[in-house]
């Protein structure tokens, strides 16, 4: 297969030590069928290609830079071991700058660590959808905390990448339920959401936050403004308050030493005619169950046979003449 090299402007980066070579055999392998399906839906019929170049950090633009958290930890790490994986960028049209697709923390950390240039993957122009796809897929390949995943999802939502819910979930490698959890977090009040992104709120507490109504969330917002800890001590009582309000509507059984229990359906004995018809229906149906493509067909059939036998016995007893009567 012959791949066309991407169209990347080479002017304006003469200061870089360019190691320009195309990675003909170095495109990422398909992660799985789900990824392939997303790529197909994005019109990506072939794996993406890129060039690897050393680029001055002064020419790199980081989207949502103000939202980056925990860059210090990247800086410390980069000082010790350098940048292990290349970030990715795309050229900004009609300029000499590049925009980060993924690796924002690494680039920011490298800058703070005193690096002036960094090796990066340079892709040709990418559509917003493909950029979102790459960002999420790269996220999937690193083991990061749920807060990092959440941050990525919030960015994608803000950028309006146009990916469907399923496509985002597949790209990020998370179950759709996890993604919906992130979507719900995205709908929390700004102050609360920003506090979560700092990373000192546990996932359990966040799940509890999602169960609050606007009235209780206002209390949480107030606590955030006053810089109180956002933990279960604050949130749990608010959830209980909300649940209790709803539970007052549920009618409970009277309490006391004579609490009743349910009784067997002895009084619900069907009429003989109904029982005969039910038995007849079962006898028609049971042989068909053997061939039914059910995992539990044998169990169902066994239960049906026992039921039918009990019904036969019951019918026999119900139809028997009274004791002492003539046969």
């Amino acid at each position: 297969m012959v791949r066309q090299p991407p169209t990347i402007p080479s002017d304006g980066i003469s200061a870089c030590a360019i190691q320009a070579h195309l990675f003909a055999g170095d495109t990422e392998p398909m992660l799985d069928d789900a990824i392939a399906e997303v790529m197909q839906s994005l019109g990506m019929t072939e794996p993406l290609t890129y060039e690897r170049r050393e680029i001055p950090l002064a020419r790199v633009r980081i989207p949502h830079e103000e939202r980056l958290r925990g860059v210090n930890r990247y800086t410390r790490n980069i000082r010790l071991v350098g940048v292990l994986h290349d970030p990715a960028v795309v050229p900004v049209p009609d300029t000499e700058t590049f925009e980060v697709v993924f690796g924002r923390h690494r680039i920011s950390g490298a800058h703070d660590a005193g690096h002036e240039t960094l090796w990066m993957r340079v892709y040709a122009h990418l559509s917003p959808k493909v950029k979102a796809f790459l960002r999420l897929t790269e996220q999937r390949r690193r083991t990061l905390s749920w807060v990092d995943e959440l941050e990525q999802v919030l960015d994608i939502l803000d950028d309006g990448g146009g990916l469907s819910e399923q496509e985002i979930a597949w790209s990020l490698g998370v179950p759709i339920t996890t993604l919906r959890f992130y979507f719900k977090v995205a709908k929390l009040p700004d102050l609360v959401r920003e506090r979560i992104l700092v990373g000192d709120v546990t996932a359990t507490t966040v799940r509890r936050l999602l169960r609050l109504g606007s009235e209780q969330l206002a209390v949480v917002e107030d606590a955030v403004i006053r810089d109180q800890p956002l933990d279960d001590t604050l949130v749990k009582p608010l959830v209980q308050q909300r649940v209790s309000a709803g539970m007052q509507q549920i009618p409970l059984l009277p309490t006391g030493s004579e609490s009743p229990v349910p009784c067997p359906p002895a009084t619900a004995t069907p009429a003989l005619g109904t029982a005969r018809q039910l038995l007849h229906a079962l006898e028609v149906v049971l042989p068909q169950l053997t061939a039914a493509p059910l995992g539990s067909a044998a169990r169902v059939q066994m239960s049906g046979r026992i039921f039918a036998q009990e019904m036969r016995n019951w019918l026999r007893a119900a139809e028997a003449p009274p004791e002492g009567g003539a046969v």
Binding site: L212, A245, G246, M247, V261, P262, P265
Partner: peptide, 18 residues
């Protein structure tokens, strides 16, 4: 005991919010 119907909530109620 009492018939099971005595223990059913009719009309069913919404699951409390939260």
């Amino acid at each position: 005991g009492r018939p099971i119907e005595d223990f059913l909530i009719d009309p069913p109620l919404p699951v409390p919010a939260g």
